[in-house]
């Protein structure tokens, strides 16, 4: 139960007081904050409409002349709302958050290369190291940069495939087939995506540097 900063009545944890409409700084999970069904597949249009509707009611701009405690509740409620929206809107963030909700949080220190990516990762890192060591503005450096640029396309294609795979598994999860299997699959896909993201960032940075040199 939480006390409303405006009317003082005790309320269930919500973002808006059902009695007086004041914002409530309740700690809520992302789905509850936005009033969305707890499912991995999400109607993004409905999500955005819900977000805008709640923002209109909760945003600190609506309470600029209110008492300090109401202003503070508005600030915290809006922070919860925006964070929830951001998490649910992005499929990768949503998937990671889901794992957290079911107590299967993906370890942040997971440095193991996903097996299906091992070969690709090894080659790209080899080339990046080569680029780093090659004398700037040499033919060798340019040759390597061209190879890495080509790899960039391959990485992006793998990333796109992983994202499609992720959405597919969201659908399966919501149909409640084999939960245990799906959790493992979800974790595998999400750690591949995390790995690919880092790699693509490294590649982009190396290419940017070689362009600048």
């Amino acid at each position: 139960m939480i006390e409303c900063p405006s009317c003082g009545r005790r309320q269930q944890p919500l973002l808006i007081c059902p009695d007086c409409g004041s914002p409530l700084a309740a700690p809520l999970d992302c789905f509850a904050a936005l009033g969305m069904p707890r499912k991995l597949t999400i109607d993004l249009g409905a999500l955005e409409r819900r977000y805008h509707e709640l923002s209109r009611k909760l945003h600190p701009d609506r309470f600029a002349s209110s008492a300090a405690r109401v202003r503070d509740a508005s600030l915290r409620a809006t922070a919860t709302l925006t964070r929830s929206y951001r998490t649910l809107r992005d499929p990768v963030a949503r998937g990671l958050y889901w794992l957290e909700l079911i107590g299967e949080k993906l370890s942040e220190n997971n440095k193991r290369v996903p097996p299906e990516l091992a070969e690709l990762v090894f080659e790209v890192q080899e080339q990046l190291a080569g680029m780093h060591d090659a004398p700037a503005d040499s033919d060798a450096a340019r040759e390597l940069a061209a190879q890495v640029a080509q790899r960039r396309g391959q990485l992006q294609a793998t990333m796109d495939a992983s994202l499609a795979d992720l959405e597919l598994n969201f659908v399966k999860w919501d149909q409640r087939s084999d939960e245990k299997m799906l959790t493992l699959r979800l974790k595998a896909i999400l750690s591949s995506i995390a790995y690919l993201r880092t790699l693509i960032r490294d590649v982009d940075r190396a290419l940017e540097n070689s362009k600048a040199a």
């Binding site: 600190p60 600030l75 809006t78 922070a79 925006t82 964070r83 929206y85 951001r86």
Partner: peptide, 8 residues
């Protein structure tokens, strides 16, 4: 580019 207010 995260919408504000926000918290972590």
């Amino acid at each position: 580019n995260t919408t504000i207010p926000t918290s972590v």
